[in-house]
Nucleic acid binder design. Structure first.
Length: 587
RNA sequence: GCCAGCGUAGCUCAGUCGGCAGAGCAGCGCUUUCGUAAAGCGCGGGUCGGGGGUUCGAUUCCUCUCGCUGGCUCCA
């Protein structure tokens, strides 16, 4: 299990932690009383609450939760003290003789002595600390049950886990539950359906996304922007095939190291092909079509490349975890000397993207050499140092994830947070020592000799699918104007206003504004409501007045009403808001 | 893949302790032509996810399977 070392925390946090941990012990006590043969795994504190893993004679069902919760409240009410006791491992082994998981934990503790905590009839191996007595716990709720492998290992028994949340006060608990509700409202799967953005079909297969016109409009806006920004930074756009001979993937090493994510080969004229899981090998092929001088470097190939990877069915999730996705991929071929400035360039681009899309909180991680790794230690150290220097040079705060790099090189990952605090895996920058060697990717240096290139894999959004999921949730479906699938809804008050409405529509289309006329013989109120529900940023209500004066009456999706203005004035101001990619609707 | 739960109309959801399947919204038709968040009336619409079994009879019970949800694990 990976546990991040705790920094020193405030007294409040410490108390909250004790409280949550104590709640998990109380839950375990209840479970023990309900299931005398229960065996116990671990019951730690997590963000917002706690869990405990049990090995029980029967499966838990959701109906068990309120029962357990009620019994927990009795224990809280009884205000039972938590008592700490130290003992030798030998004594502990005797005490937990019938608890195989606890015995395993005892074996793994390096110290001679261990501590246990008792409350009521329940004893648990535990480092602590705990609250003094159960009365200190007031605001908690059991939220879900789940299966969890013992020690996260799929080859070991699956235990039953109960998750709970706990806070210092009832108010905070309720706030948290409200936040969850708010997050559920923004769920991209729900909004994707409501706003008609995308769909996934049983008939087609799980994890395979269909982008509806409105979702595609957002994606197209993102891609246009993405391409512009890459051209500005010296990238060249390429396109590559979707299938390739298995041999290519054998050379790249994917066949060997990545097999469980690859789809089975298909046979074509006696040759085996697979659908691509990555774009890099193709970019290498193109790079190698001619000899490169050091003067040509860096070469930056960018591609919105659609790849397919087999993922376990249980991990698929809306747009954020799928089986077919489009990476905003690029590969940079450069000399080792150029690596630092290239990495800097990518970092700047990535942060620019994050900022443009309106994300303000993000974390940057540097992942270093894992146990199993290709390439010499010395090169790893050098490359890791280069990544570090690039970030320091840009005054970027980052933390180090030791041993979390990919086998072929160190990497930088950026995780950003959306408006409700959910973290998303975004840009990644990976140095690769493996592929240049496997494919012999070289350039001719000043010395006239061939040198292996330094290769960087990078994406600045992640994938179009996952990125769309993040912005749907970030904006709760109310996209900034430049991304909104429909930017302007034109609402004729009565049928006789349709002609003028069509004229406005044509005028806006000329400027590539995404516009929709609601031409139904419905009341204006209904059309406004519809546009509101679709979160269209601007509504132009067109009646006799507007038709007579060539003006438009503008309603914002915020409900704000602007005074009537000449159509051209509106068009000009709208153009500027879109051009500026403004997050503010006001014209 | 594993554990638990779920799958009823395009959508959101009732319902049947085994006996002809329901609402709201959406759709279609007619009436209404309206000034900033839902006009009125009418009409269609379902092998109750799919296969097999038990039963006189299964949407309901059993079983297999597909999919979804929450986790475990993994990751763009």
């Amino acid at each position: 299990m990976k546990v991040n070392q705790k920094q020193e925390q405030s007294a409040g946090e410490e108390h909250l932690e004790k409280l949550r941990h104590s709640a998990s012990h109380i839950m375990a006590e209840v479970v023990q009383s309900m299931f005398p043969g229960a065996r116990f795994g671990i019951g730690p504190t997590i963000e917002n609450g706690f869990y405990y893993d049990f090995d029980l004679p029967r499966p838990l069902t959701p109906e068990d939760l309120p029962v357990i919760e009620a019994k927990m409240r009795e224990i809280v009410k009884a205000d039972v003290p938590f008592v700490r006791q130290e003992m030798t491992k030998e004594e502990a082994r005797k005490l937990f003789a019938s608890q195989p998981y606890k015995l395993e934990l005892i074996d793994d503790i390096p110290d001679e002595k261990v501590s246990i905590y008792r409350q009521g009839s329940f004893v648990d191996l535990c480092r602590g600390p705990h609250v003094d007595s159960s009365g200190a716990i007031s605001a908690f709720k059991l939220v879900s049950i789940a299966g969890a492998y013992w020690r996260g290992d799929e080859h070991r028994p699956m235990l039953q886990r109960i998750y709970g949340v706990a806070f210092e006060s009832q108010t905070e608990l309720e706030e948290h539950l409200k936040k969850l509700e708010e997050a559920a409202k923004r769920d991209h799967r729900k909004l994707g359906k409501e706003l008609d953005l995308f769909s996934i079909h049983d008939e087609v297969g799980p994890g395979l996304v269909h982008w509806h016109p409105k979702g595609a409009a957002i994606r197209c806006a993102i891609e246009d922007f993405w391409k512009d920004e890459h051209f500005k930074r010296g990238y060249e756009l390429v396109y590559t095939p979707h299938i390739a001979r298995v041999d290519l993937w054998k050379t790249s090493g994917h066949w060997e190291f990545y097999r469980e994510h690859l789809y089975s080969p298909m046979e074509v004229e006696g040759q085996e092909y697979i659908v691509k899981p990555m774009n890099c090998a193709f970019h290498i092929m193109m790079y190698k079509t001619h000899l490169h001088s050091y003067r040509d470097l860096p070469v930056r190939f960018a591609e919105l490349g659609t790849v397919y990877r087999y993922e376990l069915s249980g991990v698929l999730h809306g747009l954020s975890r799928v089986r077919g996705f489009t990476q905003d991929d690029a590969h940079i071929f450069c000399s080792f000397e150029q690596l630092e400035s290239e990495v800097e360039g990518v970092l700047k681009l990535a942060l620019f993207m994050i900022d443009t899309f309106g994300f303000t909180n993000y974390k940057i991680m540097l992942s270093t050499r894992p146990e199993k790794a290709a390439g010499a230690l010395e090169i790893w150290d050098k490359a890791t140092e280069i990544l570090r220097r690039a970030m320091e040079h840009l005054h970027i705060d980052f933390s180090v994830d030791p041993g979390e790099g990919v086998f072929y090189g160190p990497k930088i990952d950026i995780k950003f947070e959306d408006a409700v605090g959910r973290a998303w895996q975004g840009p990644t920058i990976q140095v690769d020592f493996n592929l240049p060697q496997r494919f012999n990717v070289t350039y001719v240096g000043e010395d006239g000799q061939e040198h292996l290139v330094a290769m960087v894999h990078r994406t600045v959004l992640g994938s179009m699918e996952r990125f769309l999921a993040s912005i749907i949730e970030h904006y709760g479906g109310a996209f900034p104007v430049w991304l909104a699938p429909v930017q302007v809804a034109i609402i004729p008050v009565a049928d006789r206003h349709l002609e003028y409405a069509r004229k406005l529509e044509a005028g806006l289309r000329q400027e590539r504004v995404r516009v929709a006329v609601d031409a139904r013989s419905e009341r204006m109120n209904l059309k406004i409501r519809q546009a509101q529900l679709d979160k269209v940023p601007y509504m132009l209500v067109i009646g006799d007045k507007e038709a007579a004066s060539s003006e438009v009456s503008v309603r914002l999706r915020t409900g704000e009403q602007l005074p009537a203005q000449p159509f051209d004035t509106f068009k000009g101001k709208l153009g500027k808001v879109i051009m500026d990619r403004s997050k503010d609707l006001r014209l």
